[in-house]
Write a protein that binds this DNA or RNA. Sequence first.
DNA 1: TGGGATTTGTTCGTATGTATC
DNA 2: TGATACATACGAACAAATCCC
Lengths: 81, 81
Amino acid sequence: MAGRWIDPDSATPVYRQVANVLRDRITRGVWQPDRRLPSEPDLEAEFEISRDTVRRALDVLRQEGLIVTVKGRGSFVRPKS
Amino acid sequence: MAGRWIDPDSATPVYRQVANVLRDRITRGVWQPDRRLPSEPDLEAEFEISRDTVRRALDVLRQEGLIVTVKGRGSFVRPKS
DNA sequence: TGGGATTTGTTCGTATGTATC
DNA sequence: TGATACATACGAACAAATCCC
């Protein structure tokens, strides 16, 4: 298993599926601007995936400009600014 | 493309071509003993190849005793000892 | 002030699946 | 068939920034 939303057998890579779920939470406002995302270990636990895959998913959102990440602090929903 | 030195259409496999380039840097002293090589991601970027191919190239040099690799640290030009 | 815990960053190790030649 | 090459995924070790008591 890999969490409620993930299908490991899908043609869509797991990291993209995870990115989709997280993106949804941001665009729907579940996670407001400036809010800290769950830590990488927390996301590993929630989706039952490895850190590698978590980080790939976060990479996608970072590329899209939806989040910003700070070493030692965490990832945050990008403020409107 | 696959970097300045690599010809993907050559009869010589890409990983061997890369190994040749790296070996040259070592034997010519561009990279001195004990010096850390560029990381695998860096080599992926430089030669525009996958990690798999980078690692095959490094395998060749390791077999030849030209480098040693340490988990979590990197690969190093083998010291004279 | 110090030190441990938390968190992200970097790096190599291993395995699997797909595609191509 | 086997060798090559890429992408994905999980593990593990080490490093650095931050946080907290």
